Structures are given as C-alpha cells and as structure tokens.
Amino acid sequence: MSNSRTFKRAFKDLTDGLVDSELWLHLGWTDIKQRYKRSVLGPLWITLATGVTAVAMGLLYGQLFGMDLNFFLPYVTLGLIFWYFISNSILDGAVVFSTNEGLIKQLPAPISIHVYRVVWRQLIIFSHNVVIYLIIMVVFPQPIGWSALLVFPAIALFVLNSIWVTIVFGIMSTRFRDIGQLLTTMVQLVFFMTPIIWSAQSLQNASGDVSSRLRLVELNPMYHYLEITRGPLMGENVAAYHWWVVLACTALGWAAALMVMRNYRARVAYWV
C-alpha cells in the first residue's frame, strides 16, 4: 500500500484544512463578493431572488392545491431555503476542484481547504436567505415552541452532510466529468419529487391509495432532511424516524468520503 493511501493521511488532510480556517473563510467570502461585483445590491440579490421565488411559488401552488396560505407560504419558503443549501452543496461541490485548478496546483495546502470553502459559502448564502423566513414569519406567524431549537442540531447535520457530499462528488467529478452533468439533471428531478412546493398534506387530501403514495415519498432521503429542519420551525412535532434516516445517511456518506479521501486524495492535483 502506498504511504499516501492511508486513513491517517485522509484524517490529517481534513484536520489540517479545518485548522487553516483563515484561508477558507477568506476564500469563501471572496467568492460571494466576486459573484456580485459591481452590483448595486450586492449579496442582497441572494435574499431578493429567493424571496421572490418563494412568494411566487407559494401563491401559485397554494392556489393549485387549495392550501391555506398562512401555513403554505412559510412552508414553501423554508423548503426552498434548505433545498438551496442542499442542491448548491451538491452542484458547487461537484466542480470545486476543477474550478480551482490553479490554486490546487500552485498552493501547497490540504484539498479539504476547498471543501470547507464551499460549505462556508453555502452557510453565507443560507444566512442571507434566513432573512426571508423572518419576514414571512412576521406576516404569517406560526405556533413555534421550544422544539424550534431542534433546528440547530439539524443545521449541524446539514453542514456535516455538505462536507461529505463535496468530498465524494468533488473528487469523483474531477475524475469523471460526466458526473457533474448527471448530478445537475438528478438535482432538478429530485426537486420535484421532494415536498418543497407541495406537501404530504396535499397527498392526504387526494383520493386514491394515499398510504402507498406517502411510502413512496418517504423513500426520498431529501424528504427526511427537510422534515428535521422545516418541521421545528413550523411548530410541528418531528417523528424520530426522520432523524434516524438522516443520521444513517450521514454515517454512510462519511464512510464513503473517508474511502474516497484515502484512495484518491493525492490524485486530485493530476486530474484537474
């Protein structure tokens, strides 16, 4: 076995990158500023774009499904906010190494620096989008209790999942460039299969075999990720099995990430 292909080296890369937080914090914030360079509103475009989309979809699909807007608009808004975190982590993570070819080849740093950079960037975008939720909650208040605090461990799980997603898809997409295109198509498909602009309640109100439809929805892991974050903020009791599904996915994802880091971390610089 090559000395570079060990779990010890993989863990060292992850820990060294995490310790060098000044670099990836700077790079992540620079990414946001560069994206909105010479823009009047700057990063506020993130909030504005998400807010307009959430309100438009909430009003449209609320009317189509006959949903109460006092419930459905906050529901859609939260769904989009957390979905953007998930989808952007996947899509940005898939190109993280290929788009940073110069830095990877010229800067002698752990490759996990670029992973944490992507996750930090998603957290910045997420923090901008949270403003929309606060505004919506003022207009359409929900009966939130102490259970809303569960959103913090849920967000921590989102961050952990964002890291392994970026590692796995980033490294594999660098080796096989078609994976990035496949992920773009899959993310668009999963968006419509996940209760974001529609709800499980709309299935319960429909005629037919409701139980089989709900079971089909529960096969989608994204449904459980949204439930553990959106549920507490909507004042709903989140069933324990949603947490167990997310924890299981997190454990499996990190196992895959460690294997990928162990076997292919040293080859990234040659593949970009």
Rank of each mutant, 00 (worst) to 15 (best):
M1V: 10
M1S: 13
S2R: 10
S4A: 14
R9H: 15
F11K: 01
L14Y: 06
T15H: 06
G17Q: 07
D20C: 01
S21Y: 15
E22H: 13
W24M: 00
L25G: 11
G28Q: 06
T30H: 08
D31M: 02
I32V: 11
I32R: 03
I32D: 05
Q34N: 15
R35V: 13
S39A: 11
I46Y: 03
A49C: 14
T50L: 09
V52W: 09
L60M: 09
F65N: 00
G66K: 03
L69F: 07
L73T: 05
T77G: 08
L78S: 04
F82N: 08
W83I: 09
S87P: 04
I90A: 08
I90Y: 09
I90Q: 01
G93N: 02
F97I: 05
T99G: 06
I104A: 01
K105H: 00
I111T: 11
R117C: 06
V118E: 07
I125F: 15
F126M: 14
N129L: 03
L134V: 13
L134N: 06
M137G: 15
V139E: 12
Q142L: 10
I144N: 01
I144V: 13
W146M: 14
S147F: 09
A148T: 12
A148D: 02
P153E: 13
I155M: 12
V159D: 03
N161P: 04
V168N: 02
F169Q: 04
I171E: 02
D178K: 04
G180V: 05
G180K: 02
T185S: 07
L203N: 14
G208H: 10
D209K: 13
V210R: 11
V210Y: 08
L214C: 09
E218K: 10
E218W: 10
Y225R: 10
E227C: 10
R230Y: 10
P232S: 01
P232R: 04
N237Y: 09
W243G: 04
V245S: 01
T250A: 00
A251W: 11
G253Q: 00
A255P: 00
M259S: 14
N263M: 13
V268A: 01
W271D: 01
V272A: 11
